[in-house]
Design a protein around this nucleic acid. Structure first.
Lengths: 203, 203, 203, 203
DNA sequence: AATGAATGAGCCTTCATTCAT
DNA sequence: GATGAATGAAGGCTCATTCAT
């Protein structure tokens, strides 16, 4: 009979689910602090202090600082990708794709500026710290996938330069996102026009 | 007679020149360390240790850590811009510009990978730390200027989207530069082809 | 029912009490070091080294060096004032006040010489560093209050020159206390006679 | 013949005189800085920076930091004692002494507040650092001597408690001088009245 | 499961002092 | 005589991490 093992497994699953839920909750708090201060300037104390988490708990749920940060970036990834994918989901044909994609990018630049800042921070860290490379590579692969999907949905035949076009879009995204931080912020309409034109050229 | 003032001024000039020379020497050593470890992970001790500099000397020549790092980035800027400008200098007409520019970019990706890594690190830091914003803005303005020059030399009439095209090129540059760090490094020929095609499209 | 809040509050109180107790213990160790070396020459490392405290703990319980030192002076204040007040408590009439007060001062000069040294050190620091002024003013107000009490207990009508008489007594106290450090130390009897005569004149 | 030795001696004397003059000039500059920042907070760099002195020169003329500071205090002493003595010089009889002495003290409290601050700082340091004890003892002896002179000039027979009366006066002096720093500063007239009454009682 | 007290290595910075020029 | 470049020990402070409860 394997009844008992099944029960045990169920209990273990429940335990893991609960643990994951807790980890996610911690990560969400941590992201708030990281968005404000950046990777280099955010201590675990900052994270614990700006929420109702105890210092010890951070280490109870996460191996070390890197582990927590990687988890945070994963959360970010899921959220951002979900948004874009959902925006593209109902778009049919080249025109709708261009419209939906550019809209989603512009909205994200304006609304999620702080979160992207964190992403660029971690991506840069990965250049120096190999610990972060797998997660950064994973996320970047997903972002490339989004571009691929957009190309397909737009009926663009050639799937060859998807990586390159991701890189180009990312360059523009980063540039205008950074502009939001300084005083050279563009209006929403200008931004929309920039990305629309860009996608017109690419797709 | 104003001989003495002249002499005094000459001495002061010599002193300043010597000081500048020393600062540059220190900065070059510091850049070596920063390239390896990145902004967040390089302590002044690392910089002093990896060269024949004493810890106190760093503070004798630079106000503080930020001051030193900003100086380092300035040195980097001068060097990189000099290279690209000099590469474009003798190019005449669209074809030569495309060839010279793409060649310069590819060479820099391969040879100066570590230095660019530092640049991207500081640029990211500037998103969180306002101290670095002026120098980052200054450098980015120079890079945009290079793109403008290339457009002009190539006889490209529209000067409108220079900033955007800088952003796009930077996106590609960063992507392939980062690729050099990981295992997905492209060959020199592939890189050349990518940038040549890109410039063909842009110019 | 509000049992739980009560329990929580009780726990928080216990925690605070424990923290205060620990702070006091640290301060007592710190005072030992400060008494020997003086404000300017006592580093946090000295304090940690001369006791079983770790360097980090000092900062765990105190904001910074000033915070710790101010706390130390507060401890000193409480102790010194307690001693003098308790000495005056049971004195009735002019003669007993003079006797008890002069005795308490002389005992303190001889026994607590080192502690007073620290007090004079901090008081002097306050002339240059505004951080220490509030605590110094507070203590000096208490000392003046002691003199006032002595005047009242002695039946001295005029309460006018209390501040001045504190200043005079302090001048004598400091002078003979300092004498203890050098080789010109007076005997206990001489000291007693000096302060007795002084109070005879003042009261 | 001892002509040559005489000449040599004369030259050596001239040299020493010049050196002393230079030392005095340096000390005057140093005192300016010390008055502002206090013993503990004034670095040799501060002294060199706030005047036209080079860092090396300080060590060329003075053994070390303590040596310089002791010299500074000596300069202070000469100046302060000179003032008081000169004020007392022409006073004849008890009334004139009281008037001249109290006037000199009040003027010094108001005008030389910063300098006295430095004196009290050094005197306190001497409690911890034996290096300063000889000079502090020397100065205090001179101050006591001034009080003795005042007593004599006032025709006060008993010369017994001169030290004590110096201590008392110093206590009052320090108290009201310190009051000048904070917001409780007394007016010149109030101060004058306080010290006049005090001397009336003492003499 | 959760806490937060405690640790100590490491960071940036300051400073008196030395010494070649 | 005079300078100021150079040194490196020492200081205050931060922080990820550990561990007893």
């Amino acid at each position: 009979m394997n009844e008992v093992p099944i029960k045990l497994k169920a209990r273990a699953d429940r335990k893991n689910a609960k643990r994951d839920e807790k980890k996610r909750k911690i990560a969400e708090n941590a992201i708030e602090a990281l968005k404000q201060l950046g990777y280099a300037n955010t201590s675990l104390r900052d994270i614990a202090g700006n929420s109702d988490l105890s210092l010890g708990m951070l280490h109870y749920y996460f191996e070390d600082r890197s582990d927590l940060i990687i988890y945070c970036v994963q959360i970010y990834k899921q959220e951002f990708v979900r948004k874009i994918v959902s925006a593209l989901e109902q778009a049919e044909g080249r025109d709708q794709v261009i419209d939906a994609f550019s809209e989603a990018l512009v909205v994200s630049i304006i609304d999620d500026e702080m979160t992207h800042r964190l992403w660029y921070d971690i991506r840069t860290q990965a250049m120096f710290d190999a610990t972060f490379r797998p997660i950064v590579a994973e996320i970047e692969a997903m972002l490339i996938d989004i571009v691929r999907t957009a190309f397909q949905k737009a009926g663009h035949g050639v799937q060859d330069g998807v990586e390159l076009h991701y890189a180009l879009l990312d360059g523009a995204f980063r540039y205008y996102m950074q502009g939001q931080i300084s005083s050279t912020a563009l209006t929403r309409e200008k931004l929309k026009s920039v990305f629309r034109n860009l996608l017109e050229r690419f797709l």
